[in-house]
């Protein structure tokens, strides 16, 4: 009998054509409206930060990969995405060397030291941001109220979360929620364009680039915990809606926390991850020294991802295993325990 010509290979058998480039370029596409809003309000300064950030992220990736003699993969767009995400949460007036330092630390220490794309336990953009944020001598550059005081934007030039922190909820009464939603608020270059981030995020969900679980549970987490704080003390904490519409929550929910390598893979894991990100955001906003807590909340929860990945459906037990025999103590061990 003639043997059939069959190929035997492990799953998956059929490739749907999805590549890293598709994910990255879709994310870049989804961020374009928010980025454009930044250019509209802050002009050339915003363009300068975005260009420097994307450029230095790709340069850092190419440099470290050529030093380590690995294939250079900047064309897959993942470095560009992390550079753009970092730029969008920075104020437009930030000096460029901060951007370069943040990107180099984020890409080299946060990503390539752990093995590159897919092996990074933390989101590289967030690592870069955290490094420049906790540098005390540079705090003034990243304080939105100080940094953006010289711009003509046509809306209130106060960072809503800083006002909330300083004056309680009475101080933020003059911020109209509609203005916040339309992106007319002080904040990062792109992170304040709430409606455009929401549309971009929904586009990604529809295209299947990101799953719906993390953004939804992130927003629910913010709303629930902010609601608890707000009901407890209405004079010092903002309402849940205000908390969702101000600061980095929208970019955090759809773009920062959904980085593929640093978020859980199972449905319940993703739901818990998103909820805890949102909850920690509100806790950090209320009690930490920083006005916003989205980035630190996401970084903290990134560390829990290996643990959250253990939440999964029970697998059927394998057929009866051989009974476990107690380990036999070696002679020397017995002697040691006797003495």
């Amino acid at each position: 009998m003639k043997a059939l010509d069959l190929t035997v290979s492990p799953a998956p058998h059929c490739h749907c054509g999805a590549r890293i480039t598709r994910v990255s370029y879709n994310i870049l596409l989804a961020l374009i409206p928010a980025m454009a809003m930044g250019f509209y309000y802050y002009g050339f300064d915003a363009l300068r930060v975005v260009a420097a950030s994307m450029g230095s992220a790709m340069l850092a990736e190419a440099a470290i990969q050529s030093i380590l003699r690995k294939p250079i993969t900047i064309a897959d767009g993942s470095a560009a995405v992390s550079g753009l995400l970092l730029a969008l949460i920075l104020p437009a007036s930030v000096p460029l060397y901060l951007v370069v330092v943040a990107n180099f630390v984020g890409i080299v220490v946060g990503k390539q030291c752990f093995g590159g794309l897919g092996a990074n336990p933390l989101n590289p953009a967030l690592v870069g941001w955290a490094v420049i944020r906790i540098t005390r001598a540079w705090a003034g550059y990243l304080d939105f109220d100080l940094a953006l005081v010289n711009y003509e934007t046509g809306f209130i030039l106060q960072y809503p979360l800083a006002v909330l922190k300083a004056q309680g909820s009475a101080g933020v009464a003059h911020f109209s929620l509609m203005d916040l939603f339309l992106g007319k608020q002080v904040g990062g270059i792109g992170s304040s364009a709430i409606i455009w981030l929401l549309l971009g995020g929904l586009y990604l969900v529809v295209r299947g680039v990101i799953r719906w679980e993390i953004p939804l549970s992130f927003l629910i987490g913010v709303a629930v915990i902010a609601g608890i704080f707000w009901l407890g003390d209405r004079t010092s904490y903002g309402s849940p809606i205000f908390n969702i519409l101000a600061g980095n929550v929208m970019i955090g929910a759809f773009f920062l926390s959904t980085d593929n390598a640093s978020s859980p893979v199972n449905q319940w894991g993703m739901l818990v991850f998103g909820f805890c990100c949102g909850a920690m955001t509100v806790v950090l906003r209320s009690w930490s020294i920083y006005p916003d807590g989205v980035v630190f909340a996401c970084l903290l929860m990134n560390l829990f991802v290996p643990l959250l990945d253990k939440i999964k459906k029970k697998q059927p037990l394998p057929p009866a295993l051989s009974p476990v025999t107690p380990p036999v103590m070696s002679k020397s061990a017995e002697e040691r325990s006797a003495s």
Binding site: V101, V105, V109, C113, V131, I132, I134, T135, R136, A137, W138
Partner: peptide, 22 residues
């Protein structure tokens, strides 16, 4: 020069030690 004070904080110690070791 605006110092990169991150380096004298605790995380800076870990990162610089790791980079030197590498």
């Amino acid at each position: 020069f605006r110092p990169f004070t991150f380096m004298v904080e605790a995380p800076g110690a870990f990162i610089s030690l790791g980079v030197l070791l590498a």
